[in-house]
Design a binder for these strands. Structure first.
Lengths: 201, 201
DNA sequence: AATAAATTTGACCAAATAGTTAAACTAAGT
DNA sequence: ACTTAGTTTAACTATTTGGTCAAATTTATT
């Protein structure tokens, strides 16, 4: 019974995630979520009381997953020559599979910027090993001086932006050809790294 | 009379822009726009018939402005050593002043991706002089080989992303300190260019 | 000043939508 | 079989919201 309950509850959360992530808090109708989960609308309220609470559960979940990936990958102790390509690759693949996630997070964060504070507590970004690692590599002369924050932002910018801006990039540069766009992202896994390496080595 | 009419009409459009850009099509209420414009809600319909048409007017306007900047700056015939820093600077300043614009465009484009096709007709991005210029600079050995599309995307990624992701960057890396974040963006005008130059020269 | 045309307003409507409630159903324990 | 607690449903309510309309007001024209 409590298995069934968990099933329904998770089913709702999963359905709500799919809809919320695609359409955002404002654009989503409770009925849509109910349809997506193939259940009655009242059940949504039974399990999550209100749209707002359901949304918050989805948002928290989504960000947590996203943060977890950052944490794991930026904390790895591999050499930067291995680690940076891995960051780029893992993020590209993840975002290609879940293309709406980043836009969703950014969109909702802009509507309600306070939420981010709680989330940032979850991971103290600056305490990631990556930041220490950059300083060490600079001290020992392995890479040219650069502010770790800049390098961090650069890696994420180069990787994430072309995916967030997919409709524009695809239409403006790829003749709106999905395969071309996809190849472009695949090739960028290499070119982004070359771009970064040529500036730090 | 037609002066007043234009005043009211433009007043409505300006108010609608402010609200739509902050909250998006789905999140905006017609009453909010009326309040923002300090007029009666019926007037919105009198001038623009429906929410959809008002939104389209705003969206078209916003994108047109944004495209105009791209066009002008990427078409300039200055040397890349001058041109790239100018691109970074103009865009940073523009987006700092209008921080919601990019998110707005990306958000609405994701909800309604067909619109982009009309817009792309407005500017054939690949016909911008920038693309020719890169090829010339490579041919004459002035810069290292790079696909113009990659360089184009890299410049915009490095410049735009930290501003689109403002809430995250500010909270995660800048202790949520507005001045720190602002300084960071200002310094990046230089560091982005150094980053790019070290990879193409 | 009188008339006509455009503009503005407030009251109203209909559809959409979040949320409620009571009844029906299901499964577990006795 | 009966009871109880948890789950699911359908019908309903209240509110929000985009949109309409006719009357009032302002502006232009004669």
């Amino acid at each position: 019974m409590s298995d069934i309950k968990q099933d329904t509850e998770k089913n709702i959360l999963a359905a709500a995630s799919r809809v919320f992530i695609r359409k955002g808090m404002g654009g989503t109708r409770m009925q849509e979520i109910a349809d997506e989960a193939q259940i009655n609308k009242s059940l949504l309220h039974y399990y999550y009381r209100s749209k707002q609470l359901l949304f918050e559960a989805v948002f928290k979940n989504t960000v947590a997953e996203f943060i977890l990936i950052i944490k794991e990958i930026f904390n790895s102790e591999e050499d930067l020559r291995i680690k940076i390509p891995k960051i780029v690759q893992v993020y590209t693949d993840y975002l290609k599979k879940n293309p709406y996630i980043i836009s969703f997070i950014l969109r909702e964060l802009q509507a309600e910027p306070k939420i981010i504070l709680k989330i940032i507590e979850m991971v103290n970004i600056k305490s990631l090993y990556f930041f220490e690692q950059i300083k060490e590599n600079i001290s020992s002369g392995k890479i040219k001086p650069i502010k770790p924050e800049d390098l961090f932002v650069n890696i994420l910018s180069l990787t994430i932006f072309p995916i967030v801006a997919k409709p524009i990039v695809k239409a403006a540069l790829m003749q709106n050809d999905s395969e071309k766009y996809n190849d472009f992202l695949e090739e960028r896994k290499k070119t982004i790294c070359e771009f970064i390496f040529s500036s730090i080595y």
